[in-house]
Computed example of a mutant assay.
Amino acid sequence: MTLATEPRLTDPDGFYAALMEAHRGLDDASSRRLDAALVLLLANQIGDAAVLLEAIRLAREAVAPAQAAPGARG
């Protein structure tokens, strides 16, 4: 199985709204716990370690692009 990166949600705006609603009223620590719990539930649903590792890599690159190696010029 490979990671599907093409849009597949039938109602992405509805999903986003539900996710934001789930966070409503939570302090920062509780919000982070909600995100962690959701990630673990979805990871269990996927169940494929290779796919999950690829998702982690892509997510990390999306928020913190790879830094140039020490000594590299660019």
Rank of each mutant, 00 (worst) to 15 (best):
E21V: 02
E21T: 11
E21N: 08
A22C: 05
A22N: 07
A22W: 04
A22M: 07
A22K: 09
A22D: 08
A22P: 03
H23I: 08
H23R: 15
H23C: 12
H23N: 14
H23K: 15
R24A: 14
R24C: 07
R24L: 09
R24D: 10
G25Y: 02
G25N: 02
G25R: 03
G25V: 08
L26C: 05
L26F: 06
L26A: 10
D27A: 04
D27Y: 07
D27C: 03
D27T: 07
D28T: 11
A29L: 09
A29F: 00
A29N: 10
A29T: 07
S30V: 01
S31V: 04
S31N: 06
R32Y: 06
R32A: 14
R32W: 04
R32V: 07
R33M: 09
L34D: 00
L34W: 01
D35W: 02
D35P: 00
A36H: 10
A37S: 14
A37R: 11
A37C: 11
L38W: 13
V39R: 09
V39P: 00
L40A: 15
L40K: 15
L41C: 13
L41P: 01
L42C: 12
L42Y: 12
A43M: 06
A43S: 12
A43H: 03
A43W: 00
N44T: 14
Q45T: 09
Q45N: 07
Q45G: 10
I46K: 02
I46D: 13
I46A: 08
I46V: 15
I46C: 09
G47A: 04
G47L: 02
G47T: 01
D48V: 05
D48S: 10
D48Q: 09
D48G: 06
A49L: 13
A49P: 00
A49T: 14
A49W: 12
A49I: 06
A49E: 14
A50D: 11
A50F: 01
A50H: 03
V51R: 02
V51C: 06
L52K: 02
L52V: 02
L53E: 15
L53P: 00
L53H: 15
